[in-house]
């Protein structure tokens, strides 16, 4: 019997085991990447950017904060003229008064938000304690209620004043939404927002994506459809159309979009719209905040 033989066999099995192990590892890696390629927020954001870049190769990234005006030269001229005498200015001033005026109990917004008023870029965020997406309007109302004040309405009215003030003070801050991937509830909220975005609804059967991905840059009547990267940077926004003619919130805009496609709108600041805001805001990561905004 050759004495070397058992040695060889041993070696072979060892290499065999090694190969097996490598195979398993690469299989696992493959599986993980396959799953994450479908799901991760960062992959989503990169996919949106890739899509818009291929549609609008000459639009620099920072321009996306200007919405449709990044891709609509005619509308842009009009908009720049409006921005010379910003229609939202009086609302900022009223908001400052709100920020500085104490509640009946002597405390004020400043006590709830000690880092304020430059805080818009901290929202929306995942609130681990309350297990929900926290938005700025919701945080403002939680502050009010904690101090015995009535909550403000979420679509129209004075909430837009204080939001205008905070938005103006927060100009230039960078959107930096985080989805804690180790928290399944946070991931689920993000995924829920994404699902909402891609779901067709209403009698007209549109999803957010039908207009703002599939047909971005094209026109409905005379209106150019804006890209979703940049949708959240400029709120609240003054809209000059007749039934606005004032500053309104992002959730008021969601409501309007849903009504346009003949879907029953969700509740402003309810879980559906907050989760949608979470997803949508993540897409704008890296862009500068430029609210309050002015739009048609």
């Amino acid at each position: 019997m050759d004495p070397v033989e058992p040695m060889q066999t041993q070696l072979l099995t060892a290499t065999g085991r090694e190969t097996m192990k490598k195979l398993l590892i690469s299989l696992a890696v493959l599986l993980i990447t396959a799953v994450s390629a479908q799901a991760g927020p960062e992959e989503d954001r990169m996919a949106f950017i890739k899509y818009y870049k291929s549609k609008f190769p000459n639009v620099p990234m920072e321009e996306y904060a200007n919405g449709a005006y990044a891709i609509d030269p005619v509308g842009r001229e009009n908009w720049e003229a409006i921005e010379e005498f910003p229609p939202y200015e009086p609302f900022i001033d009223r908001g400052q008064v709100m920020w500085e005026t104490p509640f009946a109990n002597g405390k004020g917004y400043k006590d709830c938000f000690p880092d304020g008023p430059v805080i818009a870029h901290h929202y929306p965020h995942w609130d681990k304690k309350q297990k929900m997406v926290m938005t700025l309007p919701l945080a403002l109302n939680q502050c009010r209620e904690a101090n015995g004040e009535k909550p403000l309405k979420y679509k129209k009215g004075p909430i837009n004043n204080i939001l205008s003030y905070i938005a103006f003070q927060s100009r230039g801050q960078v959107v930096n939404v985080k989805v804690p991937m180790d928290d399944p509830d946070a991931v689920a909220a993000y995924e829920d927002g994404k699902k909402f975005y891609f779901t067709r609804r209403g009698q007209l059967n549109f999803s957010c994506a039908s207009c703002h991905v599939q047909n971005t840059g094209l026109k409905v009547r005379t209106e150019i459809l804006s890209p979703s990267v940049g949708h959240v940077t400029h709120w609240p926004t003054y809209r000059s159309k007749v039934d606005w003619s004032t500053v309104g919130t992002l959730h008021r805009r969601f409501t309007g979009c849903n009504k346009n496609i003949r879907a029953k709108p969700m509740k402003a600041q309810g879980p559906e719209y907050r989760n949608l805001e979470y997803f949508l805001s993540y897409l704008s990561n890296g862009l500068e905040l430029n609210g309050p905004g002015a739009r048609k």
Binding site: N215, L218, K219, V220, R221, T222
Partner: peptide, 9 residues
């Protein structure tokens, strides 16, 4: 043709 302010989707 002759329709006012048409879209192009």
């Amino acid at each position: 043709e002759e329709g006012e302010s048409p879209g192009n989707i």
